[in-house]
Amino acid sequence: MFKKITFNAIVLLVFNLTFYQASAQTHQAVSSINNELSVPEELLTTWELDEAASMEYAKKSAHWNEHIANLMPKLIATNKQIKYRFNKDEMVTIEAVKEHELAISLTKQTLTSYIFKFEFDDKPKQLQVIKAAGGRINIQADGLLGYQFLLWKKGRERLTGV
């Protein structure tokens, strides 16, 4: 009986060590890949504000109150003409015919978010893109006040030259 328990304990220990090593190697490989990635393929498109989804998203927020309820229509009106396009190693802000490119570099990726680094006024900053329901994203960075309540959807491609 003692031999069987000892044997099972050794098998379990070897299994756990093997699993731990495999997990550590996988984490190291993912971290290595993350350092080499620029913008993930699923973000490589133009994103436009999803007004209805943003309002519902805000209402479900723990921060929802009367003040935010009054600010949301203004926040949506201010941002509905803005689009974001992710390219290989940049995020482009599109407002009417003006475009502003921002060089970004992926620093961390999880199942639910991406974290990019960028520089603004020669200072390192962080941009977070959080995956939301329905293929939407939430974009957050320092200085983007109210953006925690906004959801962006993939822009509709427009056909040209019919």
Rank of each mutant, 00 (worst) to 15 (best):
I137H: 04
W64C: 06
L111T: 13
Y114F: 15
K108I: 06
K123M: 14
D122G: 06
I115T: 15
E51K: 12
L127G: 03
V39E: 05
I139G: 02
N8K: 06
T26R: 15
K60M: 09
G161F: 10
L102V: 14
K74I: 01
I115L: 12
W64S: 07
Y114W: 14
S54I: 03
A52V: 13
K154I: 07
T93G: 01
F86Y: 13
R158W: 06
R158T: 13
G161C: 00
L150N: 02
K117Q: 12
A77Y: 02
K98H: 11
T160C: 00
K88I: 10
P73H: 07
F118K: 01
T112Q: 15
L43P: 05
E66W: 00
P40I: 13
L144K: 06
T110L: 06
V11S: 13
Q148N: 10
G135M: 05
I5C: 04
A53N: 08
E90P: 01
A52E: 13
P40R: 08
D121S: 13
G134D: 14
E42R: 11
T46I: 11
F86N: 08
D121W: 00
Q140W: 01
E41Q: 15
N34L: 07
I5L: 15
K125M: 15
S61L: 01
R136A: 07
D142G: 09
K83W: 01
V14Q: 03
A22C: 00
W47Q: 04
A52M: 07
F7S: 11
S113W: 03
N70E: 12
K117L: 03
T26Y: 15
N35R: 14
L12M: 14
S105W: 10
A58R: 04
E36S: 14
V129N: 03
L144S: 03
T112M: 14
I115H: 11
Y84M: 05
L71K: 12
G155P: 01
F86V: 10
I33W: 11
L127V: 09
A52N: 09
F120L: 12
G155C: 07
L13H: 05
T110K: 05
D121N: 14
L75G: 00
W64N: 08
V129S: 02
I10Y: 04
F116N: 04
N138L: 08
F15K: 01
K125E: 13
A103N: 07
N70P: 00
V14F: 13
Q81R: 14
I76W: 02
E119R: 09
A22W: 05
S32H: 15
E90F: 02
I33L: 14
Y57I: 02
T46A: 06
